[in-house]
Simulated scan of single mutants.
Amino acid sequence: MEVKATAKHMRIGPRKVRLVARNIQGRPVEDALNILKFTPKKAAEMLTKVVSSAVANAEQLPGVDVDSLVVKQIIVDQGSSWKRHLTRSMGRVNKILKRSSHITVIVAEQE
């Protein structure tokens, strides 16, 4: 049985989240949360919340053993971007994109 949790419009670029997400994919949930706890990145805190949410969603289902859950898949997609500009010399402008991410975590029982 698969259970998922999503977090949308997280204010961090998807490339930065994928760096951390790659470390915990395929691991047991308890190990994944321990790895995220000691990872010094902003994305680690966000992923911790989403993985914990997926575990809480799994607890609500009857017959699911929470101790045997594994992080099956983490999908990090690009969300909307805030468009800002930075004025430059001679009347020019540079575009700044403040990117966001949609994070989906799928946990499943280990077979």
Rank of each mutant, 00 (worst) to 15 (best):
33 L>F: 03
53 S>V: 06
93 V>L: 10
10 M>R: 15
3 V>T: 11
107 V>L: 06
40 P>E: 07
108 A>M: 11
27 R>Q: 13
14 P>N: 09
97 L>V: 06
48 T>C: 09
32 A>L: 08
52 S>L: 10
94 N>D: 14
47 L>T: 02
58 A>T: 08
9 H>P: 00
63 G>Y: 06
9 H>A: 13
64 V>Q: 01
18 R>A: 10
61 L>T: 05
106 I>Y: 10
86 L>V: 12
69 L>A: 08
77 D>G: 11
18 R>F: 04
59 E>V: 04
17 V>L: 07
33 L>S: 07
4 K>R: 14
25 Q>G: 01
1 M>F: 09
60 Q>V: 11
46 M>T: 11
101 S>W: 06
105 V>W: 01
29 V>L: 03
93 V>N: 09
100 S>R: 12
95 K>M: 12
4 K>F: 13
33 L>E: 01
6 T>Q: 15
62 P>R: 12
19 L>E: 12
59 E>T: 13
85 H>M: 14
60 Q>Y: 10
29 V>C: 05
107 V>I: 14
12 I>N: 01
56 A>Y: 00
67 D>S: 15
5 A>R: 05
106 I>K: 08
27 R>K: 15
94 N>I: 00
29 V>D: 00
93 V>T: 15
42 K>F: 09
4 K>T: 12
46 M>N: 10
57 N>I: 06
94 N>C: 00
109 E>N: 08
32 A>G: 06
35 I>P: 01
76 V>R: 02
78 Q>E: 15
22 R>G: 08
13 G>S: 15
46 M>D: 12
11 R>P: 03
17 V>I: 10
47 L>D: 02
32 A>K: 04
31 D>G: 01
96 I>K: 08
73 Q>S: 12
48 T>F: 02
23 N>M: 15
106 I>M: 03
104 T>G: 07
108 A>Q: 14
5 A>S: 14
44 A>R: 06
92 R>P: 02
66 V>A: 12
64 V>K: 03
35 I>M: 10
40 P>G: 09
13 G>R: 03
15 R>T: 12
9 H>N: 15
48 T>N: 11
